[in-house]
Design a protein around this nucleic acid. Structure first.
Lengths: 143, 143
DNA sequence: ATAAATGCAAAAAATTTGCATGTGG
DNA sequence: CCACATGCAAATTTTTTGCATTTAT
């Protein structure tokens, strides 16, 4: 049997019943290096196992989101996109021309964000940092 | 005649044809201190002038967004929410319990964000900083 | 066994669009 | 005047749901 994905481990830790479908979605998410939308997740899931419906994908991402396992993003383009939350602290830089999403570490800013929240009387639960930029001439697109 | 709203001025600057409906939406947006969704914008617009349809509100926010006059946000809860872009540099703190959105200045971080983008080979076009927090016990909700 | 998950298709929401009509420049 | 904006309702798109059936524990 294939080894458990990180996402699946988190699901189990949260006491979720692990069905075949959820395992497939978990694996697809764990393997994604991009930020797929539901339609794309569904496509990838079906490729692994046709015995899954889009309704289940919707139900699953919603569930994982509520459990804090998944993060939902809106990078423009109309549809919600997802990525595992345990991806470590990070922020996004979106290329406004191509829509490509880069990630970068923001460990140094996390404390600062927490401090801001504290100042306003809040305990920081999570954060989102998104920079929208235009690739500078002469620069190679970072891979 | 009522004085022109800031948003309307921007529309004119962009060469947009100013119709009664657009003027109303512009004014509603200019007066909003919150981050209304389309439904809410429509409600407020209709209150000012019933001769407006929701389709026009959709068309208008899309147009203003494309022109960079409006910003679209996804604070969770499923629907897109809007605010004027010329609102100055700012970031949001969302109360995860109530969904309330606070704004705070982030001038001190803007330079840092720009530096990060530069490091990655990008010219910073805009950014988005969203903190999600839980109100700490004993703290009064900031106004 | 049994409470919960799934598929399917229908329903509900959210947004866009075609077209006849109205209107700003 | 006339290109473009609007209203309206229909069409799309996105997401949720009801219910009979299957499945994990």
């Amino acid at each position: 049997m294939e080894s458990q994905s990180q996402i699946e481990r988190l699901c189990v830790a949260k006491g979720l019943k692990m069905t075949g479908q959820r395992r497939v979605v978990a694996r697809v998410l764990a393997e994604a290096t991009d930020h797929p939308d539901v339609e794309e997740l569904y496509r990838r899931a079906v490729a692994r196992d046709p015995r899954i419906s889009i309704a289940t994908v919707y139900r699953t991402v919603r569930l994982l989101q509520e459990r804090g396992i998944l993060e939902r993003h809106d990078f423009g383009g109309g549809r919600a996109r997802f990525e595992p939350a345990e991806h470590g602290p990070h922020a996004h830089l979106i290329d406004v021309e191509s829509g490509a999403v880069l990630e970068f570490e923001d460990a140094e800013y996390e404390a600062a964000m927490r401090a801001i929240a504290e100042r306003l009387g809040f305990e920081l639960v999570s954060h989102r940092i998104e920079l929208f930029g235009r690739r500078k001439a002469g620069k190679v697109p970072p891979r």
